[in-house]
Write a protein that binds this DNA or RNA. Sequence first.
DNA 1: AATTCACATGAACAGACGTTCATCTAAAGA
DNA 2: TCTTTAGATGAACGTCTGTTCATGTGAATT
Lengths: 192, 192
Amino acid sequence: MNRRSSKESRQSIIDSALKIFSLHGYAGATMRMIAEDAGISVGGIYLYFKNKDELCLFLIKEKLDEFSKEAEDLFKNIDNPLDAILNYINTSIKYAKKNREFIITQSREQGFTFGIEIKKEFFNRQKALIMEIIQKGIDRGIFVKCNPEEATKVIMGIIRGFILSVVVDPDNLFDPDECCRLILYGLLNRDK
Amino acid sequence: MNRRSSKESRQSIIDSALKIFSLHGYAGATMRMIAEDAGISVGGIYLYFKNKDELCLFLIKEKLDEFSKEAEDLFKNIDNPLDAILNYINTSIKYAKKNREFIITQSREQGFTFGIEIKKEFFNRQKALIMEIIQKGIDRGIFVKCNPEEATKVIMGIIRGFILSVVVDPDNLFDPDECCRLILYGLLNRDK
DNA sequence: AATTCACATGAACAGACGTTCATCTAAAGA
DNA sequence: TCTTTAGATGAACGTCTGTTCATGTGAATT
């Protein structure tokens, strides 16, 4: 009998699940695979997680919380809205690269919509953060007068674009610096 | 015996497949569902398509070709690179909205990576088109001096961001005009 | 030594799905 | 009329997967 503490066993399952889901995707990953990788029986998984969905949702939540903390730290002391936005974009992109394989997991039959309620909550939090920064930047005259909500949506869209590119076109990822430059200065040549 | 021409039957299968895949996603859609919707037997599908993968890939290819034609028409006579880029972004976004349900289909166990070779080819074609426009814009001094490849990647990223937003955050889609404005003029207030 | 606790096992179950293929049948041709 | 062609059928097959649950076992306690 393969004996260890329940805490260890649970963590083994989580680690293995992250790995297996990342490699094979949700549907491609079977509980048998996860169990084998974790060195525990397939029935043993159900001592810790109700079912496959719950296991996957747990991972999604964990990853989103992880990022949320990181993002919120960025925005904690906002001296300079410009730096805050740049840092946010850079952090998001770095995070996407670091979690490339898990991002691939963020797809199931309904695309990236698995765990959608958790994600919506996450998006709303991020949106509020970014909007606040943009509004500050506008108030201080650093950013042009614009609809902060729309600007926020575009910026979030750009980050999502990177995420999707990580999945479908990894050979053509844009450079964060170039992206930030385009966003800040625009494409139009105003010196002309 | 439900008799009709093979052409009609094939088209019924294709139409139903598009609908069912769009509603339920790849894994959620069963051949039995598609068969029922098409009014043909489940075994009959295999008279026209080798398997489920082939049927889905056929649809992906068709949709991408459809968009390619539209995009290439946009770029046929390039008088004004600025208008061309704006039109391209607008067309892409409109196309994404119009095919929202099918886009959701663009996900399978490996995320949006099903049919990846077809998609890569598509991306490369689009990339070449956009780069050409940006280069022209730079040559004419309309766009700032920048790396056209990087600018292209950012623009493609933005469109992908819209696509992913359609899937995961449909309540917060950015407005194409606002997006174009941000891309053209940037966020920085230079009048300051 | 017997009992309890804590953790684990994996065969079996129930269900589902893509695909096959023996069979059917209407229409056209000989 | 018989034969061939063209299109269709759907039960059965084979395989797989998530989940359950009767059973096992080592360690600690009584």
